Simulated scan of single mutants.
Amino acid sequence: MKKIIGISALIATSFSTFASEVNVYSYRQAFLVEPLFNEFTKQTGVKVNVVFAKKGMAERLEREGEHSPADVLLTTDISRLIELQEKSLLQPVNSAVLEQAIPSQFQADDNTWFGLTTRVRNIYSAKRLGNVDINYEDLADVKYKGKICTRSGKHPYNVALVSSMIAEHGEAKTLEWLKGVKANLARKPQGNDRGQVQAIHQGLCDVSLGNSYYFGKMINNDKQKVWADGVNINFPNQANRGAHVNISGVGVAKYAPNKSSAIALIEFLASEQAQQMYAETNMEYPVRAGVKKSELVASWGEFKSDALPLETIAKHRKTALKLLDQAQFDL
């Protein structure tokens, strides 16, 4: 078995092959990643320059072309990684460090992107319902008629979930499921994940879809804690394929001027130290095995996750958008 190379080995490498800086385009917020970048700079001497954005990364890279200064591309979910991959805006990375640190389920087959943290697409339920053993498929059951809240079906987090349903059940059954869920909605899809938990608190619905880390964010928010206190966080499909998970991820830009430093930064982000810092800050699950979860996240309990590779799921993204239109889900 190959020995996993840690950050200590990275430090031991001759930095003559590294540039003095590395440029990052990030969809992740500053408070999440700046502590990681600062630690990387402290250990290696490589300065990290960051451009933060909420959208438009692919478009910017296409405009900049081979003159782009971007080295590392940091994204919030699988859909945005696949967009960069499909537009040939990433380059392959051959790294034994990443191959061994990150499960193959969360890597691109062509080595153009790698997952860094995972999150579950949970189903939240009103506290008064008690513990709920639920599957995603159950959301189309008539017993939930008028009781479901969700954000737009076309948001990347929901598109990924629909894509996983297509991978599991095929197009026809997934379309039927979408129509069933739409018929059970308490209101037109709107807002964000936290807004759906607020709606449960307000008595507008009984169940909602939401990423796991939002539960932690609400618990730690003085104004939103009351919303979180009124729901249970449920891990769906525990008796069968497991809960759907998504990732935050990273890749090296196609024309990265500082490729060696870019790879060094990504390898650091996959290290045990960085994985621990990353997971603690954003209340996500470390992608690297053996890294301890935050105390709050661990308190939600263990769960079984869907083992299907995310790249396989993401291949159904365009079909998922087509089915959402056919179901008129957001109308």
Rank of each mutant, 00 (worst) to 15 (best):
Q196K: 08
S163E: 06
A126W: 04
E176G: 09
N211H: 12
W300N: 09
A53N: 12
I134D: 13
Q275T: 01
F215N: 08
K293M: 08
P156M: 08
N94L: 08
I219W: 11
W177F: 13
R28P: 03
F106L: 02
G191V: 12
P257T: 02
R80F: 15
I263P: 02
K154S: 15
P236N: 08
A262T: 07
D109A: 15
Q196E: 14
G216C: 04
I11F: 13
N232L: 01
R128M: 00
N122D: 03
P189F: 10
I266A: 00
Q91G: 04
E176F: 11
L36T: 01
L74E: 01
S299P: 04
R187N: 13
Q43T: 04
L161V: 15
A256N: 03
S163M: 04
A279T: 08
A228C: 06
V226H: 01
R63M: 08
V162N: 05
M57H: 08
L36K: 06
E272D: 03
K217C: 08
Q328K: 15
V287I: 00
T112D: 07
G180N: 14
D71L: 04
E137H: 14
E86H: 14
P286F: 08
A239Y: 10
S261E: 05
N49K: 10
K42L: 01
G153K: 09
G180S: 13
K254D: 07
L321Y: 11
S14N: 14
P309A: 06
G242L: 07
Q238M: 11
E302Q: 14
F40Q: 09
V287W: 03
L73Q: 01
H155S: 15
S125C: 00
L89N: 06
A327S: 13
V231A: 06
P156L: 02
S164L: 01
D330S: 08
L89C: 05
L185I: 03
I313H: 07
I82Q: 14
F215C: 09
I4F: 03
E21G: 03
A70Q: 04
G249L: 11
V48R: 03
